[in-house]
Design a binder for these strands. Structure first.
Lengths: 346, 346
DNA sequence: GCCCATTATGTGAGCGTTAACAATGCAGTG
DNA sequence: CACTGCATTGTTAACGCTCACATAATGGGC
């Protein structure tokens, strides 16, 4: 009904609003940017003109002059996995609260070139900062090399990254799991590790090893996996031959699932014969057969903390600190128990 | 080393490149946009000037004048779930190949306001099109209402959406699973359904029901779940009491996991006593106890197809067709077998 | 009643790019 | 040799916004 109503070919611009409200475009801009020097009544007039025209500020124009895109970039490797997916989710939520948009770029492979490419791609889009979800040594190594004008923060990438970041204290988690099994009376704990190219895998293995050594327990050969249930299954098959095995600490829940499957198939009682512990606490873990004792990490929290770090760097100039460690938590379920019998000699 | 090398306060702009190459800024622009009317030698000169200065075009400026942001938006509900996460992944990959950036916005809740809010948010960012991953009736209903200047495409949202989209043929998948169980000799098939607010849940239930009716088999009461393993577990507990139950079709793998757990706990043999089928084929499914027969859907493909649809609409004007159905596939594993004994009377 | 401080508003100049048009040069044609 | 046609390059004006500054109104204080 109103004067300058909707039906003109193009989208309304600031000048249209100004005309309708009977002010200058600058006043409209002031209203939009919450500038205090606008009379209450003028502001209302502008606001209703905006509403009437359904005016939307053009973000490209604003970005062009302010040199701020209000956009952050997220680089990630495989957002199909539970961990990365959850972190991404946490990041987006936090970014929105902080007033930023989120743009994503996934990695094709893990070499430095690919990381650089993804960061460049985001840079082309004028992001103000970049979060990297890529917990592999190679990616983090590449990250340190990345030529970037914008700040970069790593999320969930171990504790050794040379860029600021938020990570779970993998080593502490692994220690807790291993110590728990030892306390249960197991002579030692076997370990199904993740790929050594992942920082998390390294840290978990280190935590496990440290506890065994501190306790003077024998340190068995590590069985390597690739995070997948399949690799856990194969690891489980290998471990079956050894009657000494009474406790297995797996570097993630998926591999633990594979191990459970191998043991179940072979007729081993869990936890009667063998105790199994995982890492991550994926939503399904409590419905494994048996329910899995595992180390819970709060991926969403990780994403949020990473984002905070980035925003602090962006807005506060220097960040208060540049590494955040999130503590994981051991969750006890049915896959662990005290040793029934002490197997073998000693 | 070169003349106008890196060290000047601000980022180089087109004019800097032009000066260094001894041409006008327009020629630089032509080179950047692959305009054919540039002499080979000039192009090379410009290209090397670009390299020397490490010049990056300013996307805001370009967007401002072309009115094209080269950005697509993705709205999604819970990207933590395997399906949505995979679709997002597929979308991003395809978008990059098609030359688009992707920006994400997650939904806080499922009401129309929230959907509209997310779309608006993306619109503020000047996206050229929006993909929605939100397979709930409410979201899809809201979608139809969404006031949007830009095209909107639904991904994985059943077949009833009133907006264009790509979806898995849930009904066909459910039919295949149910028919398979019937062919195995089961008198009927019980169904653990997803929340009826989800289109996928509705379609799967419809497919299951249709097959039973066609076969003249009794149609048991549906047991409702919420996709989680927990709800599957509870459903399994309920089904245990009924000795007539020899086959269960679950609307997703997570609930199937819960059902398996309940049956295992109760000492029922799978598939000896009861056969179980899931839906989705999540990566862990083949390591359940026992490995799960399920209906595989290719989420990544879904994302890619959805993106194609959107791009076609964006670039081709009208899209060739506006609904794409992706066929799912029944994957046979150890959780299903012919009935051992015919239980009960009849 | 005059001056200064303050509040409220307007003006003009860019931000870095592309689009439209103009201008140049050079080969081929009659 | 003037004339047309094409390939190549340059010039100028937007795009829609914010910033810095200029200008008008208001309100005390003496």
């Amino acid at each position: 009904m109103g004067a300058g109503s909707a039906v003109s070919g193009r989208q309304p611009v600031m000048a249209d609003v100004a005309r309708l409200a009977g002010v200058s475009h600058q006043t409209v801009s002031r209203v939009l940017n919450d500038n205090p020097h606008v009379k209450e009544e003028t502001r209302d007039r502008v606001l209703s003109a905006i509403r009437e025209l359904d005016y939307r500020p053009n973000s490209a124009a604003r970005t062009l002059v302010t040199r701020r895109s209000q956009t952050l970039g997220v680089v990630s490797f495989d957002t199909t996995l539970y961990g990365p997916a959850s972190m991404l989710y946490g990041i987006e939520q936090a970014a929105r609260s902080a007033g930023y948009f989120v743009s994503i770029a996934s990695l094709r492979s893990l070499d430095g070139r690919s990381v650089q490419e993804a960061v460049d791609r985001l840079r082309d889009q004028a992001v103000e900062g970049v979060l990297v979800i890529a917990p592999q040594t190679s990616a983090v190594g590449a990250l340190a090399q990345v030529k970037s004008v914008v700040p970069v923060v790593a999320v969930g990438s171990g504790t050794q990254a040379r860029v600021p970041g938020a990570a779970v204290d993998n080593e502490a988690g692994a220690r807790a799991a291993t110590q728990y099994l030892l306390d249960l009376g197991h002579r030692t704990v076997h370990h199904v590790a993740g790929p050594t190219s992942w920082l998390d895998a390294q840290a978990r293995q280190a935590g496990w090893r440290a506890v065994l050594e501190d306790a003077g327990a024998p340190v068995p050969e590590v069985v390597g996996g690739d995070w997948s249930a399949r690799s856990g299954y194969e690891a489980g098959l290998g471990l079956l031959d050894n009657p000494q095995v009474t406790a297995i600490f797996c570097a993630n829940d998926h591999m633990a699932l594979g191990v459970l499957r191998a043991l179940n198939e072979a007729g081993r009682a869990i936890p009667g014969d063998i105790s199994v512990v995982g890492f991550d606490d994926i939503p399904e873990a409590s419905y494994f057969t048996p329910p899995l004792t595992t180390v819970r990490q709060d991926f969403g929290e990780l994403g949020r903390r990473g984002l905070e770090l980035l925003v602090a760097q962006l807005e506060g100039g220097r960040s208060p600190r540049d590494r955040v460690l999130v503590a994981p938590e051991l969750v006890l379920r049915g896959s662990t128990a005290a040793t029934a019998a002490v197997p073998g000699a000693s």
